[in-house]
Design a protein around this nucleic acid. Structure first.
Length: 483
RNA sequence: GCCAAGGUGGCAGAAUGGUUAAUGCGACGGACUGCAGAUCCGUUUCCUGGGGGUUCGAUUCCCUCCCUUGGCUCCA
């Protein structure tokens, strides 16, 4: 089963049917981090977007090989390492481990391999050698540069004309270059910096070359999807095209370029240099991974998404609570009697709609990953369930499972409603809470509301929120973040 | 200056050449509750940046202007 996905491709600027080179195989490469500092929630957005892309493709029958590189040697790492008196590669490893923990928390585990740049030095040297041989590159005093003028298509992805660029606008132009738009493939290193032997002398790879050396090795000269943030379109992705196509002589490098919109903070791009970063790990801890995932997926992946501290995630939390409420009710009901519990079945038309929902949701998502539309459709389903809510108690186990079909789709594809062990209290603890709840119940039953409220307050101070639902009292952990 | 993506209700954000422009948040009203919370129901009719054009019909397509964001060799 292979699904009819339609996908926007930045290079052609249009939504096209997705056709892998060798179906059902799909090669997916996404530009990863330079882990010189803790990741922020902008990085998290891109990661979650491509996590959903990989989840959906796999659901639709594709065999996805998802590679996300790790730049563990570059100027910023070296600078930061010197400032902190740490080995830059060790610094990268340290922050990468933090990134992995965040990905684990977010249940973004679709990546098959995180190749480190420095593990691909032989491939990098091979590719630079090929570019020199084919005269796309030139060596000067231990450095090697790409001669952009040799590659006429340079600028096509971003629509830039080389003549219109303003070299030196942000970074000083290296005087060793023949043309200001040329970029470094290999940099000779200063003493004390990480260096590898090469035909041009000891040095380290330029920023762009690692990606194409890695993909050439792992995904071949040509592959299906390349993803990353829109900020990488130029120059990074232009450089990748120039390197890979120059070295291999094959075009195109990739069939679909996917670019994720920026997360902006009060209208500005979040970036370390602007100092307006909101940490990924801290945000996950404060609001929970589901709320953050929900926030990310509640916008189209290509749109910019504005983040406002103290507002955006509070709203997402409320919205997610409403979104997941019918699911939680179904789950709570199912816990009473389980799958085999007897009861009424659903009217045929409701059962039919429920079982057809995943098809509808797949269709929505397969039009260039409209996660927001899928979420809206599930909201609609939730309202339908709420109309049934009074009758839920009388439904059979199979009927409840059928009603939950769209939520299982959301769990599988969007990664919401994670079932993870970490949040569950041990049964011993739960039974202690139950004793307190029962004591409060007895106090309320004899009209001693002061005592009842005292118990409720004491539990609240211990981080436990009570909710009376009819004759029932349930509890849950209080969320941080002013909720 | 050049390139790219945008501008939709109080807010966040979808979609579409065609009856009431989705969904959520917020607000308001109601139900439930000892109270609170959570939840449910209802209301929120006059929302598509300005101007022109194409069309029977434009928010959608075209032109132009204004504005915002990203990029112009550090960036998810």
């Amino acid at each position: 089963m292979v699904h009819a996905l339609r996908l926007y491709d930045t290079l052609s600027g249009e939504v096209r049917p997705f056709v892998p080179r060798v179906s059902p195989r799909v090669g997916l490469f996404v530009c990863g981090l330079t882990p010189y500092a803790d990741a922020h929630i902008g990085h998290g957005r891109t990661a979650v977007i491509f996590d959903v892309v990989a989840r959906a493709l796999r659901r639709w029958g594709y065999h996805v090989f998802y590679v996300q590189n790790v730049t563990n040697v570059d100027d910023r790492l070296i600078a930061r390492g010197q400032a902190e008196q740490r080995d830059p590669m060790e610094l990268a490893e340290f922050h990468f481990q933090g990134w992995l923990r965040s990905m684990d928390q977010l249940d973004a585990r679709a990546v098959n391999l995180y190749p480190f740049a420095t593990d691909y030095i032989p491939e990098i040297i091979d590719q630079i050698s090929a570019l020199l041989r084919r005269e796309f590159a030139y060596a000067v005093d231990g450095d090697v540069y790409y001669a952009v003028s040799k590659f006429p298509d340079y600028g096509r992805l971003s629509g830039q004309r080389v003549e219109a660029l303003r070299p030196g606008a942000h970074v000083e132009v290296d005087p060793k270059k023949r043309a200001p738009e040329d970029f470094a493939l290999w940099k000779s290193t200063k003493p004390g910096e990480p260096a590898w032997p090469s035909p041009w002398g000891p040095g380290r790879p330029g920023w762009h070359i690692e990606d194409t050396a890695i993909t050439g090795r792992l995904l071949g000269d040509q592959y299906d999807i390349h993803g990353g943030g829109t900020d990488l379109k130029f120059p990074h992705h232009e450089a990748e095209i120039a390197q890979a196509e120059g070295a291999s002589g094959k075009s195109p490098l990739v069939n679909y370029w996917m670019h994720a919109g920026m997360l902006t903070l009060r209208g500005e791009k979040m970036s370390k240099s602007l100092g307006n970063v909101v940490g990924l790990d801290a945000t996950i801890r404060k609001y929970g991974p589901e709320v953050l995932r929900f926030f990310y997926l509640n916008a189209h992946y290509r749109s910019p998404l504005n983040f406002e501290e103290g507002k955006s995630l509070e709203e997402a939390r409320e919205s997610y609570a409403t979104f997941s409420q019918p699911y939680r009710r179904l789950r709570d009901e199912l816990l009473r009697g389980g799958l085999t519990r007897p009861g009424r079945e659903l009217p045929p038309e409701v059962a039919k709609t429920a079982t057809e929902m995943p098809v509808r949701l797949d269709e929505i998502l397969s039009e260039d990953f409209q996660t927001r539309e899928a979420i809206a459709a599930i909201f609609g389903w939730g309202r339908m369930i709420q109309e049934w809510s009074s009758k839920l108690t009388g439904l059979s186990g199979t009927a409840l499972v059928t009603l939950g079909t769209p939520y299982r789709w959301a769990a599988e594809v969007l990664g919401l409603f994670p079932e993870r062990g970490g949040g569950k209290a041990p049964t011993e603890f739960s039974s202690l809470v139950q004793i307190a709840i029962q004591a409060r119940g007895r106090a309320r039953a004899r009209g001693d509301f002061a005592e009842g409220d005292r118990i409720r307050q004491a539990l609240l101070e211990a981080g436990i929120v009570l909710e009376d639902q009819g004759s029932d009292t349930r509890w849950q952990w209080k969320r941080e973040g002013g909720g």
